[in-house]
């Protein structure tokens, strides 16, 4: 299956060629954690994953065509 991924801020460095927006092919049944593995994001990295506009846990299974957004949480004010 193919999912579309957008990486922001500190996570941009894990995107292929530093691209903000890219598509990636994953095995059927892959979870968010598998995607992070593929991108080489260390397990301890503080991040938020949103799939189709909803914040999800790393164990969440992905579906073909999902839009995944990855970003580091940070405070504002």
């Amino acid at each position: 299956m193919i999912v579309r991924v957008k990486c922001f801020t500190g996570l941009r460095r894990y995107a292929p060629e530093g691209r903000k927006d890219f598509a990636i092919e994953l095995d059927a049944g892959a979870r968010v954690a598998n995607l992070l593995d593929r991108l080489g994001v260390p397990v301890a990295t503080d991040l938020i994953a949103a799939v189709n506009g909803r914040r999800v846990a790393r164990e969440t299974p992905l579906q073909d065509g999902d839009a995944v957004v990855l970003f580091t949480p940070m405070e504002g004010g």
């Binding site: 922001f8 801020t9 500190g10 260390p42 301890a44 990295t45 503080d46 938020i48 949103a50 506009g53 914040r55 957004v69 970003f71 580091t72 949480p73 940070m74 405070e75 504002g76 004010g77």
Partner: peptide, 23 residues
Amino acid sequence: RETPLGLTINGTAGVVITTQHLG
């Protein structure tokens, strides 16, 4: 060093990404 600080890179304005995606 592990996770470059968003606040340093983009200032508090970087939070737009979070608030937009969490609605």
